[in-house]
């Protein structure tokens, strides 16, 4: 099953819509609630990151029988040092992102904790792609 969502820059009100929709789908498919939570927490953090830092992007979700694959690809400033961005507490978020309850440098670490596979690729001035995979069993 393939699903696609569009991310609009600065659209904080709708941050989490894709995650919410994926949550509903996985529940309908009777995926273990613990796994569902891991999937949606990771996807939600990725969505918030793309809305907060980039100029728009896409969320692509592929659900198989035994796993979910999620790609959050944005057009944006990119991440100059991915290793540093992966460190808990490191943040470049603007004040309005912090006003939304995010921007404390926990996004990428939270994603890593919740998924089985995480791959972050980024080009400065072009954008960032976050690929995540979670096994259902």
């Amino acid at each position: 099953m393939h699903q696609e969502y569009t991310i609009i820059e600065g659209d904080f009100v709708n941050a989490g819509k894709a995650s919410s929709s994926v949550k509903k789908t996985l529940k309908q498919l009777n995926v273990d609630p613990t796994v569902v939570k891991r999937v949606v927490v990771a996807l939600y953090e990725a969505e918030v990151n793309a809305i907060a830092h980039a100029y728009g992007g896409k969320v692509l979700v592929d659900i198989d029988e035994d796993k979910i694959n999620m790609v959050v690809a944005d057009k944006g400033p990119g991440i100059p040092d991915i290793a540093m961005a992966m460190q808990e507490g490191y943040s470049t978020a603007r004040p309005e992102v912090r006003d939304m309850g995010f921007g404390a440098g926990m996004g990428l670490p939270n994603m890593q904790k919740n998924v089985d596979k995480l791959n972050v690729t980024s080009e400065v001035g072009v954008g960032t792609t976050v690929e995540m995979e979670v096994n259902f069993n």
Partner: peptide, 17 residues
């Protein structure tokens, strides 16, 4: 218990069950 009062408060609760 939170002082954050916006859509993300509710969405976060949804994601975190």
């Amino acid at each position: 218990i939170t002082g954050l009062c916006n859509m993300q408060t509710i969405r976060t609760c949804d994601m975190a069950t």
